[in-house]
C-alpha cells in the first residue's frame, strides 16, 4: 500500500509540474507577431526615418523578417528584431526610410496640404509567408527642402522620461503664424502630451535670463495652445520647442507616437516657410507591463 502511495505521489508531482508550467507558459505567449498601434507623422524624404514597433514571442516558430509600405519603391527598411528583450518576448522595431528624393520649392501646393495616410503594411515572415497588417495611422508628408531657411536649428535633446527639446536661432526677421500636427488632439484633449514653445516677447526668452537647470529647460516657455499668434521674431532671437509625454493609461503607454510639429513662419516679401520638429514617443515597458500587455492581447483575441 505504501509503495503504491509513493508512485501515485510521484506521478502527481510530475503531472502537476508539467500541466502547471505548460499552462503558465501558454498563458504568457502572444502566439503571433503583434504590431503596436502607431500614430506617426513623417516625411518621405530620403534620410527621414521612423520606427514601427512589434512584439514577438521568443520561441515563435514564425518571425517577422521585414516589412514593406506600398508606393515607395526606394524604401530602406532596417530590422532590429531584438530591440529590447523581455522574459518571454522581444520588442522589435523596423526602422523605415521611405527614401523619396526631396522636392524643391516648386512642389505643388495641394501636395503640401494633405499627407498620404497609410494604415496597413505588408509584413513578410521568416517562413516565406506575408500578410497585410494594421499598424495604426502613418501620415506621410512629401519631403521638401529649402536652401535659404530663415531658421537654423542649433541643438536637440531627449530624455528617457519621454521629454525632449529642439532649439533654433532666427536668421531673418519673421512672424510665427501657426503650429500644426495631425496628432495635436492628444495634447489638447487627453493631456498625454505637453508641448511648450519659448518665444521672445511671449515669455521671458532664454537669451534674457540665466540658464535654468536641465530639467527646467526641458519644459521652458508656454504651452503652444496659449501662445498668441502671430508672434513677431527678430534676427538673432532664440526659439525653443520642448515636450513631455505623460501617458495616462497602460493602453496609451503601449502605443507609438511621432508627431511632426509643423511651425509656419511668414517672412515679409518672401512668403511662408515651414519647419518640422519631430516629437517622438516609443514604449519602453517593464517586464511586468509587457506580461500584462500580452495577457490583455490574449483576452482580446
Amino acid at each position: 500500500m505504501s509503495k503504491k502511495w509513493y508512485y501515485v505521489l510521484a506521478i502527481l508531482l510530475v503531472a502537476c509540474s508539467w500541466i502547471g508550467n505548460v499552462w503558465y507558459y501558454e498563458a504568457n505567449q502572444l502566439g503571433s507577431t503583434v504590431f503596436l498601434a502607431h500614430h506617426v507623422e513623417t516625411s518621405d524624404r530620403e534620410g527621414h526615418v521612423f520606427d514601427l514597433y512589434y512584439i514577438e514571442d521568443k520561441r515563435a516558430d514564425k518571425t517577422l523578417s521585414t516589412i514593406r509600405i506600398e508606393g515607395y519603391p526606394e524604401q530602406i527598411v532596417t530590422p532590429y528584431p531584438k530591440y529590447a528583450e523581455y522574459q518571454r518576448q522581444y520588442l522589435g522595431k523596423m526602422m523605415v526610410n521611405l527614401n523619396n528624393p526631396a522636392r524643391g520649392q516648386g512642389v505643388a501646393e495641394e501636395l503640401l496640404k494633405e499627407p498620404v495616410l497609410v494604415r496597413e503594411i505588408t509584413a513578410l515572415y521568416s517562413d516565406g509567408t506575408s500578410e497585410q497588417v494594421d499598424v495604426g495611422e502613418i501620415y506621410i508628408w512629401p519631403g521638401t527642402y529649402n536652401e535659404v531657411k530663415p531658421v537654423e536649428w542649433t541643438s536637440v535633446g531627449s530624455s528617457s522620461d519621454h521629454s525632449g527639446y529642439n532649439s533654433a536661432v532666427i536668421k531673418r526677421p519673421l512672424q510665427l503664424t501657426a503650429f500644426s500636427s495631425k496628432f495635436l488632439d492628444i495634447a489638447e484633449e487627453e493631456g498625454a502630451l505637453q508641448i511648450y514653445a519659448d518665444i521672445p516677447g511671449q515669455v521671458l526668452g532664454i537669451s534674457y535670463r540665466p540658464l535654468p537647470s536641465e530639467l527646467q529647460m526641458e519644459q521652458s516657455g508656454m504651452p503652444i495652445q496659449e501662445i498668441q499668434l502671430p508672434a513677431k521674431m527678430n534676427q538673432g532671437d532664440s526659439f525653443r520647442i520642448s515636450h513631455q509625454f505623460n501617458m495616462p493609461s497602460r493602453e496609451k503607454s503601449m502605443q507609438v507616437y511621432q508627431l511632426m510639429l509643423r511651425t509656419t513662419f511668414t517672412e515679409e516679401g518672401q512668403g511662408t516657410w515651414q519647419e518640422d520638429t519631430i516629437i517622438p514617443y516609443h514604449p519602453s515597458p517593464t517586464d511586468k507591463e509587457m506580461t500584462a500587455y500580452v495577457r490583455e492581447r490574449r483576452k482580446g483575441l
Binding site: W18, N21, V22, Y25
Partner: peptide
Amino acid sequence: QLLLLILYPFMLN
C-alpha cells in the same frame, strides 16, 4: 529521473 521529470518543464518559465 523523477527530479528531472519535475524540473524539465520549469525550463519554460
